[in-house]
Design a protein around this nucleic acid. Structure first.
Length: 472
RNA sequence: GGCCCCUUCGUCUAGUGGCCUAGGACGCGGCCCUUUCACGGCUGAAACACGGGUUCGAGUCCCGUAGGGGUCACCA
């Protein structure tokens, strides 16, 4: 456990400017796992201070995405914008303590400053021109921004639990803005104040925030607040090693749901991306919670691999409960067939699922693969299947149909015996009968399931009906 | 460009100075199972970026080089 007895509190702090993308989902997952591992709290903070880009739809999408992944948060979500007054209050305190100052530099001045600094190869930050000026020099009618008076020499080091000890010279850090000239707090200020007020003990976030951490640490120090533990995790890259693009999977988790991935599979995949527990590949959320540690997170970035996700998904589908799967795919089947499966067909679906789920890599595939069970005859035939129904084959099927009508019980063993008898009496290989039989029953040359199982699932009437139609 | 970070099979990774003839998983090849398609089992090819050190001994420690990434806003 940790050094002190303090309860672990983590947070996930998305900006509601879009869906919950896959990288954010992993960050949330790590925070969630860490909190649950320590029996602590996992909080949600919506960083909606960018009023123009924040939308209610995005908030809903993020909440939905997290719920779908099974990431439950403690307490009510905190909306950052609603805390602006408190942020301003902290800025004022800093001003009073002499640790912040008013800056009257104009935007034009600042860009010019950056350009010359860049041209001269110096750090491009703010040069501190209002840092020590007397307030009486303030120009008329210009409302100032408030900047932190950051230390100019020395160095700041972060003891990051993923990145290790990282040090940066303070001269690389400029006096960041706390309050804009319109009085609105900046992200840098809001984050620190909120994390402190929420009692966050561990900040686990993408390593694109690493450089922010130095500035934020300066703020914690200025306020004399305890700095939380940082853990900056590497971002996920695309299969080409470049930043994850939409084409490569930088999609919302809802897109993964629509692609037919199970939340368990995605969760399992996401944890293993950049984190490992020995050779374990497939594990439950309970195990992940038990095993998870920040120290186990790799420093190097990981690429997103759809093949591995698909493999994992196949595993979770095979192990999923049939009732649950049926619920997921019924709407998909209804849509594709443009009808609603009745009770009878729903029963058929449940019966078919054990063999269907052995083969599918995703939910959409699962639904499509079983479509033939529910189509109205006459079945649409694919070309390969059509070709299997030669006159010779039809003869075997006619023979089989006759034998089948003598059956008292429509059970697998008896059906199998009749197929075997047909094969034997006609003195042909098994495939000579089985292949056209499959084609007749499914309209396909290849389909999931043993042929006798398919007949049992289809039922006596439907099986015979399809056979008769194929023969004629 | 400045600063910071990263670098083990194609990909995700195990590995914390001798257990490494570098292990597992996905993907790929072969074989087996088989009533198609899958599942499954067995098996094969496949990596310590490069160059210097340190050490009796380096994938593991240090330095450099190369490549990759992040970040440098009155955005978050």
């Amino acid at each position: 456990m940790s050094q002190n007895a303090k309860q672990v509190i983590t947070r996930f702090a998305p900006s509601p400017t879009g869906f919950l993308h896959i990288g954010g989902a992993r960050t949330a997952l790590f925070n969630w796992l860490f909190a649950r591992h320590h029996g602590g709290k996992f909080m949600l903070r919506i960083e909606d201070t960018d009023r123009k880009r924040s939308t209610q739809e995005a908030i809903d999408a993020i909440l939905d995405g997290m719920s779908w992944l099974g990431l439950d948060w403690d307490d009510e979500p905190i909306f950052q914008y609603s805390r602006a007054d408190r942020h301003r209050e902290v800025a004022e305190q800093l001003l009073e303590k002499g640790l912040a100052y008013r800056c009257y530099a104009t935007p034009e001045e600042l860009t010019e400053m950056r350009e010359t600094a860049k041209a001269e190869g110096r750090p491009v930050g703010y040069d501190g021109r209002w840092r020590d000026r007397d307030p009486s020099e303030a120009p008329e009618g210009v409302s100032p921004a408030i900047r932190l008076k950051a230390p100019r020499d020395g160095a700041t080091t972060i003891h990051d639990h993923v990145q290790g000890e990282v040090t940066v010279q303070n001269q690389e850090l400029d006096d960041m803005i706390l309050l804009r000239s319109d009085g609105s707090p900046t992200y840098m200020l809001s984050v620190v104040v909120d994390d402190h007020d929420m009692g966050i003990t561990h900040i686990i976030r993408g390593d694109d925030h690493l450089t922010n951490a130095f500035r934020q640490k300066l703020l914690y120090q200025a306020m004399d607040w305890e700095t939380p533990i940082f853990a900056h995790i590497p971002l996920i890259y695309g299969p080409d090693g470049k930043k994850l693009s939409k084409r490569h999977g930088a999609l919302g988790v809802d897109a993964y749901r629509d692609m037919g991935y199970l939340p368990d599979a995605l969760r399992n995949y996401l944890v293993r991306l950049g984190w490992a527990h020995g050779d374990d590949e497939i594990f439950s959320t309970e195990q992940a919670t038990e095993w998870f540690s920040i120290e186990g997170i790799n420093k190097s970035p990981a690429r997103f691999d759809f093949d591995k996700l698909a493999n994992l998904n196949g595993h979770y589908i095979r192990n999923a409960d049939e009732e649950k799967l049926a619920q997921l795919i019924k709407p998909l089947i209804d849509k594709q067939l443009d009808k609603s499966l009745d009770d009878n067909l729903c029963q058929r679906l449940i019966a078919a699922l054990p063999s269907l789920k052995e083969r599918a890599k995703d939910i959409n595939e699962l639904a499509s693969s079983g479509l033939f069970y529910f189509r109205e005859s006459p079945l649409p035939f694919e070309e390969k299947a059509e070709k299997l129904l030669t006159d010779e084959a039809k003869g075997y099927l006619k023979d089989l149909l006759q034998r089948l009508s003598g059956l008292n019980n429509w059970v697998k063993s008896d059906i199998h015996d009749q197929i075997a008898a047909t094969v034997a009496d006609n003195d042909v290989g098994f495939g000579k009968v089985a292949k056209p039989l499959r084609a007749a029953l499914t309209g396909l040359a290849a389909s999931p399931g043993n042929i006798d199982d398919i007949m049992v699932i289809l039922g006596e009437d439907e099986s015979k009906k399809r056979l008769e139609q194929a023969i004629s």
